[in-house]
Design a protein around this nucleic acid. Structure first.
Lengths: 258, 258
DNA sequence: CGCTTCGTTGACGTCTATCAATTCATGTGG
DNA sequence: CCACATGAATTGATAGACGTCAACGAAGCG
């Protein structure tokens, strides 16, 4: 039986956080409505005040920032098991958009449920914070790529990153996985035009490094691609044992409100 | 009497999080060693496992990513009152560098103290998570700027952002504040060369929009600069009332370890 | 006063955007 | 099964933004 979206989300948390069995169980009791979105359809819009977080069940989701001239910059990509706006639990007013890049199913988990979880299990609040830290680390790496690498390296880096993430999420291997992006969407992710992305992909193909064909990535020479990309997976925080701040046994006593 | 670094840090938390008086008091009881750094001196290096977080007392601190050819990209700037690696409490292994961009004093607050705070006051853990969310939001905006705006807009945007942040931190006004950066360091922050930054500053000066002279920014035409930058301060999460997830009255009971 | 770092400017080259046309893939309906 | 429509991928020619190289000037400091 395939893993549910919640199980995938829990798997993701387990990669970096050591959770208790109660915390595990509590996460799996989360409930939310499934929603279906078609490519180019927005899931969240700027200045909205959201009251639920979007757990990606299937498909590829992107967060993007739109310029006045209509040009877009994708700031992050989310795959199955990623909660693409977990941070909205503590900051519900958003200033960006979340969109479906491919056909997508998301589970909208009410903030109320996630807040209750944080209150009952502060160890989970820490795990959520740590999860946000991973996102921030990826953001920082993208800033480095956009600011200081050429187009070829930027495309190569994205292929490496999504490979490692897909493998960690058991959605494929780092050298063969689905990435259902058009070249325009890829261009919006690496700060280029679709024309130039096309040329960069052509070069990567000619160098026998990697191919992207109809939403599927095949990396033919991982080391070569990683070298072009200057890819070092440390920033994905997948090494080392899961961490824990909270003691494993605790309970919260809530008093009457002031 | 000038505010201490801890008071400034607390001010920053208060901007977005509603804390109880106990939580306030607990933050002010944090202790750490003061360290002095000269410009270009690194405070934290990649692959280090840090055991304290750096609270900026004075000066300008930058986090940066270094490429193989030695080129740098600054991914974030931190001013007085910012805890520039608060996230290291939950993710102590870092993959980036933190450096002094000007003469700097930082207070190194041991993770142990911050962890104890999170355990005794989960409401503070939430506030820390929210603080990290602000950083992530700034990261995302920088990605948009680097990917989809030209050099002039990128420089202008940085001047706007640091103005609003300086004003929020009571370190100046949004149109007149200290930004002790060389043009090379500014270039490393906006993904340009120092030569080109020089030309962009010259243009902003010629347009009577803003000047940067010996570490001091004067914005002559805020609206004009914001227009060039497409600056919208929403992403800094300074609007709206401080948020709270945890009830105001609670206590934690910790049991024996499993 | 000399040294070092930083700021400034010009000439030139490269990377990437822009514009435009063509091909390809996919799906639909006759 | 083929004609057609649509969106995506591909390619060539040209233009512009930014980098590179090099030189000089200004400012701070011992």
């Amino acid at each position: 039986m395939p893993r549910t979206a919640l199980q995938r989300f829990l798997d993701r948390l387990d990669l970096r956080s050591a959770l208790t069995s109660q915390e595990h169980a509590a996460v799996l009791e989360l409930r939310g409505e499934a929603h279906r979105y078609e490519p180019h359809q927005d899931i969240v819009s700027p200045d909205e005040r959201v009251d639920s977080a979007c757990l990606v069940k299937s498909g590829l989701v992107g967060r993007y920032d739109q310029m006045l001239d209509g040009e877009r910059q994708v700031t992050s990509l989310y795959i199955s098991g990623d909660m693409c706006d977990l941070h909205s639990v503590v900051a519900p007013r958003v200033s960006w958009s979340i969109t479906a890049l491919s056909p997508v199913t998301v589970i909208r988990v009410p903030h109320r449920e996630l807040r209750d979880l944080c209150i009952s299990y502060p160890g989970l609040a820490i795990a959520f914070w740590r999860d946000g830290t991973v996102d921030a680390s990826i953001f920082a790496k993208w800033i480095g790529n956009l600011g200081r690498k050429d187009g070829k390296a930027r495309v190569a880096h994205l292929l490496c990153e999504m490979g490692v993430r897909s493998q960690a999420a058991h959605l494929g291997t780092r050298t063969a996985y689905d990435l259902p992006l058009t070249q325009k969407q890829l261009a919006d992710s690496v700060g280029l035009t679709s024309v130039h992305v096309n040329r960069m992909l052509k070069e990567l193909r000619a160098d026998h490094l990697a191919t992207l064909d109809r939403g599927r990535v095949e990396i033919l020479n991982w080391d070569g691609l990683a070298l072009v990309a200057e890819f070092d997976p440390n920033y994905l925080m997948l090494q080392g044992p899961p961490q824990r701040v909270f003691p494993r046994q605790y309970s919260i006593v809530t008093h009457a409100l002031q």
